[in-house]
Computed example of a mutant assay.
Amino acid sequence: MRLPPARLAVWTGAAVHEVAQVAAIGAATGVLAAAVTVKLARVILLAPMVALTAWARRRASPAGAGDVAAGRPAVLPLFVAAFLGLAALRGTGWVPGPVTAVVPQVTGVLTAAALFGLGTGIDVRKLARGGRVLLLGGFASTLVAGISLAGAMLFV
């Protein structure tokens, strides 16, 4: 099945777990900007869930309990705040043209370096012995891919 670019971008951003993997797929298929935008929208929507979970844990924990005493979790992760700030800055038009012209090359190199780093951390022997964990991961990935594909087909 061949998906139109808009559906492919939404499916990629919704189904793939890592931002770097979304960027790699988006770059390879020509839907980089849209796929990463969908993925980062998913990431931003995690902030309210993190805040609600932290609030619920604080209420359930007795005063002075370990993780409560250790400090408050951030309501908005720093990278999400940075993304929002940089997106707003870019939207103002204040970023000079030469800077925006070089950003794709820099992000390409940084993405390749990040993917190389992720790849070197894989132990193939442990992966081969995965058993039930590998089966569960495959099932979960298939489920997420199917649900997000259905959403992309229905709503895009």
Rank of each mutant, 00 (worst) to 15 (best):
A145Y: 02
A82C: 12
G137H: 09
T120E: 13
A20I: 00
A81K: 11
A9E: 08
L110W: 14
A47C: 12
L76I: 13
A88G: 06
W94L: 13
R72A: 15
S61V: 01
S148T: 15
A152R: 07
A51Q: 03
T120I: 14
A20Y: 05
L143F: 09
A28C: 03
V144Q: 12
P98L: 01
A15N: 12
S148W: 02
A88H: 01
A14D: 13
R132T: 13
V75N: 04
G66R: 15
V38S: 01
L46D: 09
L127R: 15
V38A: 02
G117F: 06
L115E: 02
L40T: 09
G131A: 14
W55T: 12
P77I: 03
T29H: 09
P48I: 05
A112T: 15
R42Y: 01
P5M: 02
R132D: 06
I147S: 10
V103T: 13
A65W: 14
D123K: 06
A81N: 07
V43H: 10
A23M: 13
I25V: 14
G26D: 00
L127H: 07
F116Y: 11
V95D: 00
G138W: 04
A150C: 05
A81C: 06
R2D: 08
P4H: 09
T111E: 10
R2C: 07
L143T: 14
A28L: 10
A34C: 00
P104S: 08
Q105P: 00
S148I: 06
A41L: 14
A145C: 05
P98V: 09
L78M: 15
A63W: 15
T111R: 13
R72P: 06
V43I: 07
T120D: 08
V22G: 10
P73S: 09
A114Q: 12
M153T: 00
